[in-house]
Amino acid sequence: MHRLAAAPHIVWSVLFIIAPLMFVIYYTFTDANGKFTFSNIASLAQASYFEIFMRSICFALIATAVCLVIAYPIAYFISKAKPKTQKILMMLVMLPMWTNFLIRTYSWMALLEDTGIINTFLGKIGLGPIHMINTAGAVILGMVYNYLPYMILPIYSVMSKIDVKLIEAAYDLGSNPFQVLTGVIFPLSLSGVISGVTMVFVPSISTFYISQKLGGGNFDLIGDTIERQFQTAYNYNLGAAISFVLMILIMISMGIMNKYSDGETEVVV
């Protein structure tokens, strides 16, 4: 009976997770003629690819850090609000996700362009224009904007479950408000922070399109490189090799996160 109930999941996993993974591995280690080779992986050992990988990691780390810094106080503030207000605030956090990802990114282009809405406004009050589009900052902004809800959500959900009595106990034992935050609230919300960091870092490092639109093609990221191999260069083998390396990279970073989480809250994505 139990086995039967698991059948759809097994079929799903085989069809859409295991099989594609096998294809990635197959293409990674074969050449255009289907012969076994390491040359795809070996060809990645070039300064240009190294630069792309480093840039992607760097951008993803910055975006994750910025998300954390913005999301933590927001999550804390929401968890402190009245239950009814909490619902409304969480809906507002999720609201941008109702709009399509592409449209959101295009909207940012319209906002950030040299003749865009922000610069027109800045120009009117004599502060601009400031060049914003096609900079690294714009790319990271795009990532932060798109993935921020994934950081707020898990932190908020853990924080809202912290027993008020624990916070009172900390005050009672002599903690000032800052010590309550560092000594009780932060450690108890750590599992939320870890899932939030994972949920932002993983899509950030593999994202494409954001950097093409907001970075003006100046900041090639792993995602864009993979896309190009499949869409433009039709080099499936190289594209698969890059994906494969990215996968290993993500697995390593998740391993590190799991180590930090003390095994208490396994990171699952």
Partner: peptide, 28 residues
């Protein structure tokens, strides 16, 4: 504020810090 008062409380459902062991709870 509570943290500046010379009183301490034993809470109804204890309110022990779940992220700390017995020693660290008492040493808090």
């Amino acid at each position: 504020p509570p943290y500046k008062r010379h009183v301490n409380t034993v809470f109804q459902k204890y309110a022990l810090f779940p992220h700390l062991n017995v020693y660290e709870n008492i040493a808090f």
